[in-house]
Write a protein that binds this DNA or RNA. Structure first.
Length: 947
RNA sequence: GGGCGGUUAGCUCAGCGGUAGAGCACUACGUUGACAUCGUAGGGGUCACUGGUUCGAUCCCAGUACCGCCCA
């Protein structure tokens, strides 16, 4: 006997273990079956399960379980990525908290990395266990880690990364360059654009005078829209607005828009940077470029190519030198020679007297001694104060400014010109874009392809080097003169170098490691054994679908596409399903800092994994975000309870589970009907899942289980079960058990635990379940169970019961009253239905009698529909006014419908141009409504005559 | 500034050319041997606005307003 309700807490862990022990998560390996593979978007090894993961993996698990049941050879590839910065941060923090004297630097690179591995082995990857709590049926025996295996120097995951780097380098698609990157002063490494969060913060805009060289003057004229002069004055300066005064020291030019007439007189002249020792102030040219917006600030922009993204572009276009001002900690430089020496060299460069390489320019430290060693914000204060003291400050504006923050460190990112390794993403992007355009890879919903194109079409060189210790060390070695030797390993590099130099030469390996995403980009094939040509690779690459959220299109989809196509000659996935973001009840993004984050595991604890999973599925409509509330999860927990109790009822009534059934065996309309309904539901669910319409599949299940199976079928079979007809009982027991069996299968991908528990606990002693529900065949009925006759009959029964119930309720007939009802004017077929279903109709509508007659009882309330009428003998127990009100309301509605439809039919254009079946449908409606209206009208007259 | 999306019942959202739907909330009634984590019934909508296409528009097109998100 089943318990009163399902207890997720005690059942889930046990069931999951049994699946795992039985090897249910393993691919069948059956090469004759169609392969179906998904690679998990690998979560950070430091990660903890958040709502996004929970949704993402629930959807993957639904698909994977569905396809497994359909007999496919399924691999759901799990694993984690090594998360360079995040992991290094965790271990560094641990060292600090330990309170000893150990730190990353005191340990040194090798020992520190050992510590990271130890951490990874002991406490990393807790998210994996959290995924198991959700029910994720990943192929855990094949779990992968982007850093591979610590103890195996020939590790294939590392091998794959090395090979990709070396190959791309040899093909000219990886190069080393000095470019502006996002520098994180806290972690002292470059980070990706995508790890930078731009936020609006309160800031200042300082307006300064840059005096013209040699005391020159010009007439500055401002005009309004109509060309009227609004300001005209002589100036010996150009006004520059900046939010970052400390970077003035590295200015290489002042730029104005070529069409800006205000500054036309001074373009090509020089102006002075108004800071630093007066005798060594630098002069910089006033140039034109399209970048400055004449309507913003003064319209003149200072150009600091080494510390600003936009300025970098201007400087590149106009060959303006880019002077780096800060060190790795974003403090003003202390290296190099004196300011005086640097400034005089810079002047010479500016005057075109000498040329300098980028490295020579970079070596110049243009920070005056007074500012050296200051933090960038301290330097800013000083610079502002010094300029102000000089009388060259015009004004300070308070305003919101957009600043870049490191998403891990939370500090302001410093754009900085540094030497880094880059991938020519613009090259690799071409075939990756083409693959989507040609439909080889499809986005679902397809509008996300636009986002993909937009990014890919504007893709920047991908900076892949990171100044970290934890990660794949870049396989590049430098000779004493800086020559680069890229090779698979040190021996190979050494051989190259010795050849190059003609003698044994000492090499130093690049200190940097690769961006974590560099190795993640290989995930769809590296996890399957590449570069070996493994059986797994043949079977499971390309993968069937990648499931992810839109905010990760750039991280995942784009990079995997580029690498997959380049190295495998085939796209890494056929479909990319982009799911919703999980928002809180108010539609806000969940975040720790806002404090509105919900913990999926808490919800699992409270309501069970199934409830959370079903909630996600039902809310996962394409193209919409999900607002999650506890109430929703509770509601779907109730749904699982409902199903549980339906099974419990079946069990109590001796229903038989675990057997086959064929359409020919069924004689009772209600059994034929529920089988037909099940068939329709199964078709809808399958179709929806094939189209990634998780919400529609979940909806079909919810409706079938609650509104059809529980609300009607179980109610309808109660009279059978309590009756005397043993043949009918036997058929119904068999049908009911079978329908529930099939329902469990259909629901299993969504709520694996409760369905598996029911499967296990509803077995008969005589017919023990042979295997898990999880490995049963997916119900595929086609239209084998369709039965128009039974469906029509039961539709009539349901309709009749509903009408009687509604009328009783509206007229306030006591719920317990057993009233008499009769059916009048019915066709022979309907009469037969009425007799056949007398007992269930009586029971469900709470009738004392339900008879078929030709004579309408005198004092009865009429329920009319088309030809037939149901008369309820309740006139004596109700308020006639209530009945008149009911009739008036119904008649009013009917009259309105009839008038509207008649008008439509009177329109010649409608009759001529609308499809004939639509016209016919409308005609039939009018006929039926008119008949009904007539009957209601006569009933009303009669009623009036009584009272 | 560029791009994407949204606006349907009190709330959260489906639907997307042919009589407006669900869940929750609400109201009334109800413990009938599966389930009160429940049942039965009911109320509630000019489908943001303005034009257009069409026999017919919540649905397609154009524009307007407001609200999100992403990128600069």
């Amino acid at each position: 006997m089943l318990d009163q309700r399902f207890d997720p807490q005690s059942a889930e862990g046990r069931i999951y273990e049994r699946w795992e022990e039985a090897g249910c998560f393993r691919p069948s390996g059956d090469t004759s079956a169609q392969a179906y593979s998904i690679v998990i978007p690998p979560p950070n090894v430091t990660g903890v399960l958040h709502m996004g993961h929970a949704l993402n993996n629930t959807l993957q698990d639904i698909l994977v379980r569905f396809e497994r049941m359909r007999g496919k050879n399924v691999r759901w590839q799990p694993g984690t990525d090594h998360a360079g910065i995040a992991t290094q941060m965790v271990v560094e923090r641990q060292l600090a908290e330990a309170g000893g004297n150990e730190s990353r630097t005191s340990l040194g690179r090798e020992k520190f990395i050992d510590r990271v591995w130890e951490w990874k082995e002991q406490s990393g990857g807790q998210i994996i266990n959290q995924l198991k709590r959700l029910g994720a049926s990943c192929d855990w025996e094949n779990e992968r880690f982007t850093m591979g295996d610590r103890h195996n120097p020939d590790d294939q995951m590392q091998e794959a990364v090395r090979k990709v780097f070396v190959d791309l380098y040899n093909e000219g698609l990886i190069y080393r360059d000095k470019r502006l990157v996002n520098w994180d002063p806290h972690f002292q490494t470059a980070i990706s654009d995508l790890e930078v969060e731009n936020r609006d913060v309160k800031g200042h805009m300082w307006h300064f005078k840059y005096p013209l060289a040699g005391g020159e003057t010009y007439t500055y004229v401002e005009k309004d829209e109509d060309g009227n002069v609004t300001l005209e004055e002589e100036r010996d300066y150009i006004s520059i607005a900046t939010t970052r005064p400390e970077t003035m020291l590295g200015d290489g030019a002042v730029a104005v828009h070529p069409d800006d007439e205000r500054y036309a007189p001074i373009v090509g002249k020089l102006c002075e940077i108004p800071v630093g020792p007066k005798e060594h102030r630098r002069l910089i040219p006033i140039i034109t470029d399209d970048y400055p917006d004449p309507d913003f600030g003064s319209g003149a922009v200072k150009i600091t190519g080494a510390h600003d993204e936009n300025d970098y572009g201007v400087a590149q276009r106009n060959k303006i030198p880019m002077y780096r001002l800060m060190d790795d900690r974003a403090q003003m430089r202390t290296d190099g020679g004196s300011y005086e020496a640097a400034a005089s060299k810079a002047k010479a460069i500016a005057a075109g007297e000498v040329t300098a390489s980028a490295a020579e320019v970079d070596a110049l430290n243009l920070v005056p001694e007074a500012y050296r060693g200051l933090d960038r914000y301290e330097a800013r204060k000083q610079v502002v104060a010094d300029i102000d003291a000089d009388g060259l400050m015009i004004e300070i504006e308070e305003k919101l400014i957009t600043q870049p923050f490191g998403d891990r460190s939370g500090v302001v990112i410093e754009p900085m010109l540094t030497d880094q390794w880059f991938v020519k993403a613009e090259e690799l992007a071409k075939p990756a874009v083409e693959a989507v355009r040609s439909g080889e890879t499809k986005f679902v919903p397809e509008n996300w392809a636009k986002t993909y194109y937009n990014w890919m079409d504007n893709i920047q060189p991908w900076c892949i080097s990171r100044q970290l210790w934890w990660g794949h060390r870049i396989p590049a070695w430098f000779g004493p003169d800086g020559t680069i030797f890229v090779a698979h390993d040190e021996t190979a590099a050494q051989a190259k170098a010795d050849g190059h130099y003609g003698k044994p030469t000492e090499l130093v390996q690049d200190e940097d490691v690769l961006d974590t995403w560099f190795s993640s980009a290989l995930w769809p094939f590296s996890t399957q054994g590449w570069p070996e040509e493994t059986e797994a690779l043949k079977q499971y690459y390309p993968t069937s679908v990648l499931i992810t959220a839109h905010d990760i299109i750039f991280f995942w989809v784009a990079r995997m596409m580029m690498m997959g196509i380049h190295f495998m000659d085939e796209v890494p996935f056929h479909d990319v399903y982009i799911h919703a973001l999980v928002l809180d009840e108010k539609g806000q993004k969940m975040s720790k800092s806002k404090g509105n984050a919900m913990d999926p595991l808490e919800l699992v604890d409270e309501y069970g994994a199934d409830a959370l999973r079903f909630t996600f599925a039902r809310l996962a409509a394409q193209g919409r975000n999900i607002r999650l509330s506890k109430g929703a999860v509770e509601g779907y927990r109730n749904f699982t309870t409902k199903l549980w109790n339906a099974a419990r009822f079946a069990e109590m009534n001796g229903c038989e589970f675990g057997h086959a059934l064929t359409p020919g065996e069924l004689k009772l309309p209600l059994n034929r009907w529920i089988a037909a309904e099940l068939g329709k539901a199964a078709g809808a669910i399958t179709e929806a899942l094939e189209a990634y319409k998780f919400n529609e599949a979940a909806d079909a299940l919810y409706q079938f289980i609650w509104n059809v199976l529980c609300d009607w079928y179980i109610e309808l079979i109660k009279p059978v079960m309590n009756g005397e007809d043993e043949t009918a009982k036997a058929e119904t027991r068999k049908t009911c058990g079978w329908v529930i069996d099939q329902t469990l299968k259909l629901l299993h991908p969504f709520t694996p635990f409760v369905t598996e528990a029911l499967w296990e606990q509803t077995e008969d002693e005589s017919r023990a379940r042979e295997d898990f529900l999880m490995v049963q065949d997916w119900p595929a009925f086609g239209d084998a169970w369709a039965n128009a006759e039974a469906e029509a009959e039961m539709a009539w029964v349901l309709d009749t019961v509903s009408e009687i119930r509604s009328t009783r309720s509206v007229l306030n007939v006591p719920a317990g009253a057993q009233i008499s009802a009769s059916l009048i004017g019915a066709s022979d077929k309907v009469k037969a239905w009425a007799k056949e279903n007398e007992t269930p109709i009586k029971q469900l509508a709470r009738l004392g009698s339900f008879t078929v007659t030709e004579d309408k009882p005198a004092r009865a309330v009429t329920i009319a529909s088309g030809d037939e009428t149901v008369a309820l003998e309740i006139l004596d127990v109700i308020d006639p006014a209530a009945e008149i009100a009911r009739l008036d309301k119904e008649m009013g509605k009917l009259q309105k419908d009839i008038t509207g439809t008649e008008k439509k039919l009177a329109n010649e254009n409608f009759v001529a141009k609308a499809p004939p079946e639509i016209v016919e449908e409308n005609r039939e409606r009018v006929t039926e409504w008119t008949a009904t209206l007539a009957k209601l009208s006569s009933a009303r007259e009669q009623l009036a005559s009584f009272s």
